[in-house]
């Protein structure tokens, strides 16, 4: 049997699953981002630290995300729009899931590509029609996967990836959000 390698350390994940079964408190993570207004609708958000496994943790380096609106919104377009960041999150989460599930199922991946489209009626955010919601109406993800597996096995990979995806869950199910002024 040839060893397949998608670069995912599945054993570490399976071990973590066993350990955390008996230690739910260590499984509590808090992800954090800090944002600063620049000018207009342009802002920068930095991410470096988070909490998990019972202590403060840190990414290897700080990442800065720039958000703005495009010129058709009469803005300077210094970066992508905030709602586009949701597409980034969804695509990267599902892709990570595909790789992990494939590794766990012994499927060698050669390429995994996806396109994500979010349909958005901007009359909602403009207040032009109170019946239109602010967020996406529909999101469509299309995967193109080249792997040593049948079409059915590939479909199963993508289905399982959605089943275990944090961002898919966060987008498809309601979440309590508290926004306060410090």
């Amino acid at each position: 049997m040839t060893t397949i390698d998608n670069g995912v350390n599945v054993q570490a994940l399976l071990d973590a699953r066993e350990v955390l079964k008996g230690a739910p408190e260590a499984a509590q993570f808090t992800w954090r981002a800090s944002s600063r207004w620049q000018n207009g609708v342009h802002s920068t958000t930095t991410i470096q630290n988070f909490f998990g496994l019972g202590q403060e943790q840190s990414h290897k380096r700080e990442t800065v995300f720039t958000a703005d609106h495009p010129e058709v919104f009469a803005a300077e377009d210094n970066g992508i729009t905030p709602i586009e960041y949701l597409l980034v999150g969804l695509a990267s989460c599902l892709t990570a899931g595909v790789a992990s599930v494939a590794q766990n199922r012994g499927i060698q991946l050669r390429s995994v590509e996806s396109t994500v489209e979010g349909d958005h009626d901007i009359r909602g955010i403009l207040g032009a029609d109170s019946d239109v919601r602010n967020g996406f109406n529909d999101i469509k993800v299309t995967f193109t996967i080249d792997a040593d597996a049948s079409q059915e096995d590939i479909e199963a990979l993508v289905a399982q990836s959605q089943k275990r995806s944090a961002v898919f869950d966060a987008l498809t199910n309601p979440t309590n959000v508290t926004v306060e002024v410090a």
């Binding site: 289905a159 959605q162 898919f168 869950d169 987008l171 498809t172 199910n173």
Partner: peptide
């Protein structure tokens, strides 16, 4: 509120 994940 129902999940939007029906298709999956």
């Amino acid at each position: 509120l129902f999940s939007g994940g029906l298709r999956n």
